[in-house]
Simulated scan of single mutants.
Amino acid sequence: MLPTSNYSKGLVTRFIRRFRRREDGIISVEAMLILPLLFWSMFASYTYYDAYRQSARNIKGAYAVADVISREDGDVNAAYVNTMYDLLQAMVETRAPVTMRMTYLTFDGENDIHNVLWSCVRGTALPKWSNADIDEIKPSLPAMPDNGSMIVVETRNTYRPPFFIAFEFSEFEMNNLVFTHPRVFDNIANSDPSCIVA
């Protein structure tokens, strides 16, 4: 019995050594280990790229709307504001609703205050500005001359990532604020009742 037992042990030992030295099938094992990481990195790269792309679209859309309004020499009415909102939505082309706020300001240099002449909002994420709360964005506004005027366009939408990539990368708000000076007339009138500031 003892020699047979030693012989069996020797066979098992040789089999284990041969198995340990064998390399066939190692590519399949490595592929199974690396494929999840490879797919995750592809999805994560696309998600981060998509977030930056969406941010760039938002800011470009806000600049386009501000530039169009700055060249206006007529009356801004409800149809005009709706068209600007449609333009913004077409440029942004996002998976979430977009909110736009257009505000026309003047600056009283003597009292160092901004006065809201009109403020239009399309969408639901932002309220209209008024003289009582416009100081909230005062640090974000550039220096203005006395009696100067300015068009401020703000956009907001929620970024919804196409893939869940962990690390708490979930939905977040994208906010943009751009401003420009009127190019044609210093006083751009607005006849849209929803834009009147109380």
Rank of each mutant, 00 (worst) to 15 (best):
T94D: 13
N58W: 07
E93F: 14
A51M: 10
Y52V: 06
A90T: 14
D73R: 01
S70R: 10
Q54R: 08
G74N: 10
M100R: 11
S70A: 15
S41E: 00
R95N: 12
S55A: 15
A64Q: 11
N115D: 08
V76I: 12
V65I: 02
T47V: 12
Y104S: 05
V76R: 00
S41N: 14
R95D: 05
I26K: 03
V76S: 02
G61P: 03
V76G: 05
A56D: 05
D67P: 00
M84W: 09
A51Q: 04
I34M: 15
H114G: 00
G61L: 04
S119H: 13
I27T: 12
A79K: 08
Y85C: 01
E72C: 04
L35S: 06
G123T: 04
I113S: 13
R57S: 09
F43W: 03
R101G: 05
G109T: 09
I26L: 14
Q89H: 02
W118V: 02
V92I: 13
L87C: 06
R53C: 01
P97M: 02
G61D: 02
L88V: 14
M32Y: 06
A96V: 07
A62K: 03
D50A: 12
F107V: 08
K60C: 00
F107N: 12
Y52G: 04
N111K: 14
Y48G: 10
I69A: 04
L37F: 15
D73L: 02
L105Y: 01
M102K: 00
G25T: 13
I59R: 09
R53D: 13
W40A: 07
D67I: 07
N77M: 07
E30M: 10
K60I: 08
Y80I: 11
R122H: 06
S41P: 05
H114N: 08
S28A: 13
L117C: 06
I113D: 15
D112K: 12
N111S: 15
S45T: 15
D73G: 12
A31V: 11
L38K: 03
T99L: 00
A31R: 03
D112H: 09
Q54V: 05
V81E: 04
D86E: 15
A78K: 11
M84F: 07
S70K: 09
D67E: 13
E72H: 04
L87K: 12
C120G: 13
Y63V: 07
M100V: 15
Y85N: 08
P36I: 04
A31F: 14
P97Y: 05
M91G: 13
V68T: 03
R122P: 09
T106Q: 00
N58T: 14
Y80G: 03
G25K: 11
H114P: 02
T103P: 09
L35K: 03
M91C: 08
A51G: 03
I27K: 05
L37T: 11
D108P: 02
D67T: 01
R57T: 02
T106P: 10
L33N: 03
L87I: 01
F43C: 09
N77L: 06
A44N: 02
A79Y: 05
A96E: 14
A31H: 00
P97W: 01
A96S: 13
Y104Q: 07
S28D: 04
T47N: 06
N82F: 07
